[in-house]
């Protein structure tokens, strides 16, 4: 029995070693977050982050396998080693940096408040007493909670559900990253003429690819590729491709 076990173990190791040589990393994204990462009709992850990491991989000389995972627990999965890289519009925050490493930022965004068409506000303080929806654990929730304006925060599994609830008139506003807000308010046919971006915060946030601590070599390679992509104008092209039409 023991010998058979050893033999099968050896076979498995033999089978695995060529795969390791090809250097493939698993990239995870919560594909409910257009235009950064979402699924196309063929259920493949697409979007700005996905394009970006594929371009990075091409220049840094490794392969990527894109995987759609749930946002809730996405960091736990990274810590557990279920995937190597997060390309899920993760804002670089000091709290997250304590546990994870981030690449050079690949996008800068602000928080935006979406409200029914025609409504605008001048500051977050005007959300006092209003019910504001968002996605569990995205920076929009943290920003609003930190601002402490007395808004009732309702957290959904993904931002699309929050926006559906806003369109149904059960909540007063939704707070999320501004490209996502603009995508839903301006580009989505089903919400056409119903929603608009009511407010945008001034504070810039930067999003980066997120890695488990202690993978400095991989992080350096990613950073180098990101720098290149920024310099030669590829980044600007990708921004135009994914965010251009929803501005």
């Amino acid at each position: 029995m023991f010998r058979r076990l050893l033999l099968s173990l050896a076979t498995v190791m033999l089978l695995c070693s060529p795969a390791a040589a090809a250097e493939k990393f698993v990239v995870a994204g919560d594909c409910n977050f257009p235009p950064f990462e979402y699924l196309n009709d063929k259920k493949e992850p697409i979007g700005y982050s996905m394009d970006y990491i594929t371009e990075v991989a091409k220049r840094a000389g490794f392969e990527v396998e894109l995987r759609n995972v749930a946002w809730d627990g996405i960091f736990a999965g990274l810590a557990a080693g279920n995937y190597d890289i997060l390309a899920s519009t993760t804002t670089i925050t000091p709290e997250r940096q304590k546990t994870f490493d981030f690449s050079t930022p690949y996008y800068g965004l602000t928080q935006a408040v979406i409200m029914p068409k025609g409504k605008t506000i001048k500051s977050l303080a005007e959300l006092k007493g209003k019910t504001v929806g968002s996605q569990i654990g995205i920076t929009g929730v943290f920003v609003l909670r930190k601002a402490n304006v007395g808004a009732i925060i309702r957290e959904y599994d993904d931002v699309g559900l929050a926006i559906a609830d806003l369109a149904a008139g059960r909540i007063d506003a939704v707070i999320c990253d501004d490209p996502v807000a603009k995508y839903y308010a301006n580009k989505r046919k089903d919400f056409e003429g119903k929603l608009n971006v009511a407010y945008q915060t001034g504070d810039k946030e930067y999003v980066g690819f997120c890695l488990k601590k202690g993978r400095k070599d991989l992080l350096d390679r990613i950073n180098k590729a990101v720098e290149e992509i920024k310099k030669d104008g590829t980044e600007a092209k990708m921004m135009e491709k994914w965010m251009g039409s929803s501005k």
């Binding site: 654990g137 929730v141 957290e155």
Partner: peptide
């Protein structure tokens, strides 16, 4: 908790998502 009701489970998820203490 999937329809945004802040019940016990949602509170736990919310806490986990901001502290990363899953």
């Amino acid at each position: 908790s999937v329809i945004g009701m802040p019940d016990m489970m949602q509170r736990a998820r919310s806490f986990a998502s901001q502290s990363y203490a899953y």
